[in-house]
Amino acid sequence: MLVLTCHACGVTAEETEFHAGGEAHLKRFGPGSSDEDFEEYLFMRANPKGVHFERWRHANGCGKWFHVARDTMTLEVFGSYSAQAFAPPEELLSRIEDRRPGWRGQD
């Protein structure tokens, strides 16, 4: 059972109020892109054991999308951040670094 905080409305609730939206920060490749890029965008996923950045929607709440950093092995939630961010904020990254020393090197 995950407890997440919606970055848009600030509500902290358990996961049944939210809907998972998969890996975050994927770059879209649409018509005209190469087969490799299109495949990468549509199907290839990091699927890491450990720190994972992902999209969530506050489906039974304010309805907005936001980002979450979470550990796929322990289900520890490191924090959430704006859906409009292209990358996780530095403050969050250093918080993860505190909890998982050296994790960036593994990526």
Binding site: C9, V11, T16, E17, A59, N60
Partner: peptide, 10 residues
């Protein structure tokens, strides 16, 4: 004000 779910509905 709280938006949430009641059992299976928003």
């Amino acid at each position: 004000m709280r938006r949430t779910r009641l059992a299976q509905v928003p």
